[in-house]
């Protein structure tokens, strides 16, 4: 067998390094979440007790996170898809400037956005105390991802031509929008939606400043439990987080990779 080139060993080394810092801690954390006693190790027995404990203490944070993620998805769909459509249809500098502005909440640190929100609207007590305050932050943060994702697909199809084709056949604006535009950017909407869900469930920076003791989300609860409870409970919490977030990431990877949904095979 020929000896492998040096590049191979360098790549292998790099891959192992990445594993050591990315995957090993994750595995250890998951293990810690299901061991009876972390200090004894996995030999001391496996238990779901800590997960049960997490559920008892933090079920409401999990539900709140899911509720915010779904509401956030609804908002970004209603705001983001039409916004992407308008940006795709309008050439010109104003449209491009708006496109750039939309990315601001991603570029600016989450803490700064949160502070700005508190300074501006913290005075509205009921609003400040409700989960809607967090929702606003999440929508601001995730909207650019939805718009970008849909816009990318809209720019790759000849949108104007498709719409003119539909109009020439007698389709009114709403018929064109729902019957031709939306189905043709389905892959972008899907990818955007998964991205928004994933980001919203995992968002910590903004949420940490925006939350109140009564509106804790999953990541905030996680930080909380690591700071104040047994390591096993914190780790069990991580397990719960993974169970929610990993399916999203896997789907995202699949749709992101193919770009558009696979075409049906022709009937023979």
């Amino acid at each position: 067998m020929r000896s492998r080139p040096i590049a191979f060993w360098l790549q292998l080394g790099f891959t192992l390094l990445v594993c050591a810092f990315l995957i090993v801690p994750v595995c250890l954390s998951i293990m810690a979440g299901i061991t009876a006693n972390y200090f004894v190790g996995i030999g001391g027995g496996v238990t779901l007790r800590w997960i049960g404990e997490v559920w008892r203490l933090y079920a409401d944070t999990i539900f709140l996170s899911l509720r915010i993620a779904l509401a956030c998805l609804a908002c970004t769909l209603v705001l983001g898809v039409p916004a992407a459509y308008v940006l795709a249809r309008r050439p010109g500098r104003i449209a491009r400037a708006i496109e750039e502005l939309l990315v601001m909440p991603v570029a600016v640190p989450g803490l700064a956005t949160a502070l700005a929100l508190i300074v501006a609207y913290g005075g509205f007590g009921d609003f400040r105390r409700s989960w809607l305050f967090i929702l606003v932050g999440h929508v601001l943060f995730t909207l650019p991802f939805m718009v970008r994702s849909v816009l990318a697909v809209l720019c790759s199809i000849d949108l104007r031509m498709l719409e003119e084709g539909a109009a020439s056949l007698g389709a009114r604006f709403h018929q064109r929008f729902f019957g031709v535009v939306l189905p043709n950017c389905r892959s972008g909407i899907l990818a955007g939606s998964l991205m928004v869900l994933t980001l919203s469930v995992g968002e910590f920076n903004l949420t940490w400043l925006l939350h109140t003791p009564l509106t804790k989300t999953l990541p905030v609860g996680l930080a909380d439990s690591y700071a104040s409870l047994r390591i096993e409970i914190g780790s069990a919490y991580t397990v719960v987080f993974f169970v929610i977030i990993i399916p999203c990431l896997v789907l995202l990877q699949r749709f992101g990779a193919t770009g558009r949904p696979r075409t049906r095979k022709a009937k023979p």
Partner: peptide, 30 residues
Amino acid sequence: ERRNVGMVFQSYALFPNMTVAENVGYGLRV
């Protein structure tokens, strides 16, 4: 959409999300 003209575009402008029959039936559906 209110002139009732038929138009054939140079780049066809067919709907990629529909089959041949659905493309042809689109004008009747709307």
